[in-house]
């Protein structure tokens, strides 16, 4: 199986546009995974028939104070200072807890048990087929309003693959270059960097390109809204050895199609070969 992540740094560069078109252009059984759990929107384009949901989160401690001796070991081991023991008082701040489980491991009296703290949900569905007629699975994570951490939801989403097996996985990453993006990229085979040819696009492209490099993953660039801005992105790609996989020009009809919920390859079928070529090229490079 080949796992491709579509990331960009800057928001609104066209990650979902590219990810959904790559998925539809696939000639293999494919899964599109929307990892932008704070604002998933790939579903709007693929219109899957939803068939399963699941609550996810992290395991947080619950304390049996009858057993607690207030030794404070749990508070000492907590890297995130989510537990405080002061005198004969034990305090727990769930919003600081990362669910590592260390407190339960060090508790000498077995006063700590774990329970699921629900942070969001996963949704699975079957989209209509790819343009070549192979199956297209869909899954996404959704973070509950007010939750501070997206990573545990993305981690669970990546694990939630117990459906019909696929040969290609396309992950639509969140914007930015912080932990949720790292988690989306981790374990993938290739990173498609979507950018726009502007100083802002370039600035963020550099950050995510660096991430891919740190994670030792091959990457290539798709320039979206080509024709605006300047040539600095192309110059940067040449200097840093990043291949330009394709260019999608700035055209009003694309914006109109996307605003009405259509994917790029459906609105402009002449671009289908571009996406097919990109998939072939990646497949050759990662050698599967």
């Amino acid at each position: 199986m080949i796992r491709i992540v579509v990331a960009s740094g800057k928001g609104g560069t066209g990650k979902t546009t590219i990810a959904t078109s790559l998925a539809l252009a696939a000639r293999l059984p494919t899964r599109l995974m929307d990892c932008d759990v704070e604002a998933p929107n790939a579903m709007l384009f693929l219109a899957p028939t939803l068939d399963d949901t699941k609550d996810v989160g992290i395991l947080i401690p619950t304390f049996n104070e009858d057993r607690c001796t207030y030794c404070g070991l749990c508070a000492q081991v907590c890297e995130f200072h989510a537990i405080a023991v002061v005198g004969k008082k034990l305090l727990f701040f769930p919003e600081l807890c990362h669910g590592c489980g260390s407190c339960g491991l060090v508790c000498p009296t077995g006063a700590i048990t774990e329970k699921l703290d629900v942070m969001g949900g996963l949704t699975h569905g079957q989209a209509t087929l790819t343009l070549s007629g192979t199956s297209l699975e869909f899954s996404q994570g959704t973070m509950n309003v007010g939750e501070p951490m997206a990573v545990p939801i993305i981690r669970e989403l990546k694990k939630w693959t117990a459906y019909s097996p696929v040969d290609l996985e396309i992950r639509d990453a969140p914007p930015g270059a912080s932990c949720p993006v790292v988690e989306s990229i981790r374990g993938a085979d290739y990173v498609v960097l979507v950018t726009e040819p502007t100083p802002f696009g370039l600035h963020d492209l550099k950050q995510v390109a660096q991430l891919a490099k740190e994670l030792a993953l091959p990457a290539g660039v798709i320039i979206n809204r080509d024709g605006i801005g300047d040539e600095a992105v192309a110059e940067y790609c040449a200097e840093s050895g990043l291949p330009i996989l394709g260019r999608v020009p700035m055209e009003r009809r694309f914006a109109e199609a996307i605003a009405s919920g259509k994917t790029l390859v459906e609105a402009a079928p002449e671009y289908l070969p571009v996406f097919e070529n990109i998939l072939e090229r990646i497949s050759e490079q990662v050698g599967r």
Binding site: C78, F80, H81, A84, V86, F93, L96
Partner: peptide
């Protein structure tokens, strides 16, 4: 230099 929960740690 705590990454988070500095207030909780300083209080303890």
């Amino acid at each position: 230099s705590a990454s988070g929960g500095a207030g909780v740690l300083a209080a303890q």
